[in-house]
Computed example of a mutant assay.
Amino acid sequence: MNDVAIPSNSTAIYRWRRLCRRTMLARRVATAGTERKAATTVIEAALREILNQTDYTTLGFYWPIKGEVDLRPFVRDTLADRFELALPYIPVRNQPVRFRRWRPGAPMTQGFWNIPIPEDETCLSPDILLIPLVGFDSQGFRLGNGGGYYDRTLKSAGRRILKVGVGFEKTHLPTIHPQWHDIPMDIVVTESGARVWS
Rank of each mutant, 00 (worst) to 15 (best):
R142C: 09
D186P: 06
L47Q: 07
I50Y: 10
V92Y: 03
R195Q: 14
R36Y: 04
T23N: 05
G158C: 07
D77V: 02
D186A: 10
A80K: 01
S198A: 13
S10T: 13
C123N: 12
E49D: 14
I187Y: 09
L19C: 06
S138A: 14
R18L: 14
R21T: 09
L130V: 01
A12H: 14
T31Y: 04
T11C: 09
E191R: 05
N2D: 11
F136M: 07
E35K: 05
D70M: 03
D55N: 14
I183P: 03
A12S: 15
P64N: 10
T109N: 11
T122S: 08
P91V: 09
P132C: 10
T11F: 06
G158D: 03
N52E: 10
I161W: 01
Y62W: 08
Y149M: 02
V164L: 12
D137F: 02
D137N: 10
L25Y: 04
F61R: 06
L25M: 13
S10V: 13
K66E: 11
V189L: 04
D55W: 08
P88K: 12
N9L: 06
I128L: 03
G135Q: 05
P96H: 02
S125N: 07
R48M: 03
V75T: 09
R22E: 15
T34W: 10
P126S: 07
A30R: 14
W63S: 12
R28N: 04
M24Y: 01
E169K: 15
Q110G: 10
P132N: 05
R22M: 08
P184L: 12
Q95H: 11
I176Q: 06
P118Y: 02
T78H: 15
N94A: 15
S10W: 04
E68D: 12
N114H: 13
R159A: 10
P132T: 09
I176R: 07
F141D: 08
I187D: 06
T171V: 14
R28W: 08
G140W: 08
R82V: 03
P178W: 05
V134R: 09
F99M: 05
P184T: 04
V69P: 13
T23D: 08
F74L: 09
W180I: 10
V189G: 06
V188S: 03
F112A: 11
P104R: 00
P178V: 01
Y62T: 00
R36P: 11
A86H: 02
A5Q: 09
H177P: 05
R21W: 11
P174D: 15
N9I: 03
P116Q: 05
G105A: 05
V97D: 00
W16R: 15
T78E: 15
A12N: 13
G193C: 01
Q139P: 05
D137C: 10
K170L: 13
V97C: 12
I50H: 07
I65G: 03
Q179P: 02
D127F: 00
A106F: 01
Y56G: 13
R72G: 00
G167D: 07
N114Y: 05
C20S: 12
P104F: 01
G148E: 08
Y62Q: 04
I128T: 02
V92N: 08
E68V: 02
A80D: 01
S192Q: 15
E49N: 14
T153C: 08
G105V: 00
V29A: 13
